[in-house]
């Protein structure tokens, strides 16, 4: 049953809060995911962000630690 997804909140935070989240957590204690296309990632990305284009995300969830805070953009 996939009802859990309806009750798990995905917070939207602004860039100031995102900056604070990155500052609060050591690099290995959180994950930053860039879900744009590779050429957009190449032009600019948040340092330390991992590129997983949105179309691939469903198949690559195993690469992300679900226990750690994950920032997505």
């Amino acid at each position: 049953m996939r009802w859990k997804q309806f009750f798990t909140p995905v917070k939207s935070i602004d860039t100031d809060k995102a900056r604070a989240l990155i500052d609060e957590n050591a690099a290995q204690a959180m994950t930053i995911i860039d879900v744009r296309q590779p050429n957009e990632y190449e032009a600019s990305h948040i340092p330390g962000a991992k590129l997983i284009p949105l179309p691939d995300l469903g198949n690559r969830l195993a690469e992300i630690d679900p226990q750690k805070p994950t920032l997505i953009y």
Partner: peptide
């Protein structure tokens, strides 16, 4: 459980 979407993106 701790997913944050950055509004406004890059």
């Amino acid at each position: 459980s701790k997913i944050y979407n950055m509004s406004g993106g890059i």
